[in-house]
Simulated assay, not measured.
Amino acid sequence: MEHVSGIKAAIVAAIGCLSALWGWFGWLVIIWICCMLLDYITGSAAALRAGEWSSKVARDGIWHKLGAIITVLVSIILDGVIGLILDNVPGLSLPIDYVVFLSVLTLVWYIFTELGSITENAGRLGAPIPSWLAKAIAALEASVDDAGDKLAPEEDEDKQT
């Protein structure tokens, strides 16, 4: 029982540290981590229910999550670099105070992706899923995609030749 209390204390301490260090951004990270864990658990449960669970697929899921973590870290680093450039290059500025943007967009996109996957897994577990819920998650994810696409619009194919 002491072991469980120690784990709970460590989790609460980690959450408290993230909140103190990052404020609302820390909560966004915590929500994303919880979504990743819930997706992995519900995906494994759905595969077990269907008799399709395999350690290879489970490992692939972990590798997939690791790739997402790396992508979020890259976006956090990029936000930091952009902030340093804006703070230290004379004459270069934005009409807003830049703190974080790309990492928030990336985290929110991953959260919506995980929520969509969790919803699909719940359906595979036999829970009825309201169609409007799946549509709302997809619409929110698409709106984040649109916001990100406006940052780096694709060139016309004719211009790339």
Rank of each mutant, 00 (worst) to 15 (best):
A142P: 08
S75N: 01
P153H: 14
L86I: 15
I85K: 07
N121E: 02
F112V: 03
S5T: 13
S117Q: 09
T106F: 02
I69T: 00
I30W: 14
S117Y: 04
P90V: 01
V144F: 08
P128C: 07
A134V: 04
G6P: 04
G126E: 00
I69C: 13
L18T: 10
A13L: 10
S5V: 07
A9F: 01
L115G: 07
L92A: 03
P90F: 01
I31C: 09
G23M: 06
L37E: 05
G80F: 07
L92W: 04
W24M: 00
R124V: 03
E52Y: 06
I62V: 13
I33N: 02
G67N: 01
L78A: 14
V4S: 07
I76A: 12
D156N: 09
A58K: 05
R124G: 08
Y98P: 12
L107F: 14
G61R: 15
W24Y: 13
L37I: 01
L18A: 12
G80W: 08
T161W: 14
C35L: 15
P128Q: 14
E114T: 03
L105K: 08
K159G: 01
L21W: 10
F112Y: 13
V12Y: 10
I15W: 00
S19Q: 13
W27V: 05
V4R: 13
L37N: 04
S44K: 04
W24E: 04
A152H: 06
V72T: 12
A20E: 15
D149A: 15
L48S: 06
K159I: 15
F101Y: 14
T106D: 05
V29M: 04
W109V: 05
L66G: 01
T71P: 03
G67V: 00
G83A: 08
I82T: 11
G23D: 00
V29S: 08
V12M: 06
D97K: 15
A136G: 03
A139D: 09
A13E: 04
L86E: 14
K56F: 11
I15Y: 05
L18D: 08
M1P: 14
E141C: 10
A134I: 10
T106A: 11
L133H: 09
W132M: 14
L102H: 01
S117V: 12
A13Y: 09
L92Y: 04
A136S: 11
D97W: 02
T106E: 02
A136R: 06
P95M: 02
L115P: 03
M1S: 14
S5F: 10
C17Y: 09
A122E: 07
Q160F: 11
S5K: 15
